[in-house]
């Protein structure tokens, strides 16, 4: 009898009733099944409690090494991944583009192979090119977690958003979720549309046509140009960050005009359901896409999103590096 079998027997329960496991990497929501998404959400739900303990640390990933490779600046996602790894007792090293050798002309593959030679268990990467996480996963044996690749996907954001919505609303069936802003350049929007659709919610996308991808209907969501139409009867209103550029550009004449047309104000929020909640992936531009009174108001779940982000990332790191050995046959 192997230790594994003995261990499973001793707890006299099956480790996972339905045998759901994650894939080797987490590069996109598109690659996840609904069961896998729910496994992450369920696990994340339980991990929230760890952050409320007197000693906010469990030994689950002791001896595991996590490298955060951030080729794009990001304070909150990087910090969230760092704390998530540390609360699981993993050794966490973050490398940002300014300190990495990428600036010396090294390719992504070279950088990754150098890090790989130090045998990390998980590589978390944020990169400005769509598909770079898939690229890394193809060339590295460590588990790769996509922390945002260009305008492609930001799966951990979608998962923390889903957990936040589930806590507020109980389930996803029949929920109307409006996502408003720069859809064309938003990995958050893409991952959320896929994730929420898989979970059974109806997603509505709204924004100026200049910031809506051509063929946006391929994303499987309802598309609106009018903000008012988009948030009518919504259960959840998710506002996206608008890139503020000086002097306007071809997509947006000005942030003032954007706020007038698409900013989430209390008056606009009144068009949504009475118990509608407000979300924002951060960082917010107050007075550009969202009024402070809404961002800080009673229906805002923005801080819950941050808390859940930590729990969901702990769950993902744990499921990829701690549990989920894929080579041991299931025991009953």
């Amino acid at each position: 009898m192997t230790d594994a079998v003995a261990a499973a027997r001793e707890t006299s329960e099956s480790s996972a009733d339905d045998g759901v496991t994650l894939n080797d990497d987490l590069t996109s929501i598109a690659d996840l099944t609904r069961d896998q998404i729910e496994l992450i959400l369920d696990t994340g739900d339980h991990f929230r409690e760890i952050s409320e303990r007197p000693i906010k640390k469990v030994p689950a990933l002791r001896g595991k090494t996590i490298v955060n490779l951030f080729f794009e600046p990001s304070t909150r996602t990087r910090t969230s991944f760092e704390i998530a790894g540390k609360r699981l007792s993993a050794d966490v090293q973050s490398i940002s583009a300014s300190t990495s050798s990428v600036v010396k002309g090294e390719t992504l593959l070279d950088t990754a192979q150098n890090i790989e030679a130090m045998a990390p268990d998980i590589l978390v990467m944020r990169h400005k090119s769509a598909g770079s996480a898939d690229f890394l996963a193809r060339h590295c044996s460590a588990a790769v977690v996509n922390a945002g690749d260009g305008a492609h996907e930001h799966p951990t954001q979608a998962l923390l958003d889903a957990l936040t919505i589930r806590q507020a609303k109980g389930s996803f069936e029949g929920l109307r979720v409006a996502i408003v802003g720069d859809i064309a350049h938003s990995r958050v929007a893409r991952s959320n549309v896929i994730c929420l659709s898989k979970l059974g919610a109806d997603v509505v996308l709204a924004g100026p046509p200049t910031l809506m991808p051509m063929h946006a209907n391929a994303l499987g969501a309802e598309i609106h140009t009018s903000m008012d139409h988009a948030i009518a009867d919504a259960d959840v209103v998710m506002m996206l960050r608008i890139q503020v550029e000086r002097g306007g550009n071809l997509n947006l004449p000005s942030t003032q005009e954007y706020f007038r047309l698409y900013g989430l104000t209390e008056e606009r929020l009144a068009l949504a359901k009475d118990d509608a909640v407000v979300m924002h992936p951060g960082p917010m531009n107050r007075g550009v896409e969202i009024a402070s009174s809404v961002a800080d108001g009673p229906r805002s779940l923005i801080m819950n999103q941050v808390t859940n982000g930590l729990a969901v990332r702990m769950a993902i790191l744990f499921l990829l590096a701690g549990g989920g050995s894929r080579n041991v046959e299931a025991t009953s």
């Binding site: 690749d149 051509m214 063929h215 391929a218 994303l219």
Partner: peptide, 14 residues
């Protein structure tokens, strides 16, 4: 620029 670029988030060439 089409359905796949919309899904992948890659810049489309119309």
């Amino acid at each position: 620029e089409g359905a796949v670029s919309a899904e992948l988030g890659l810049r489309g060439w119309p």
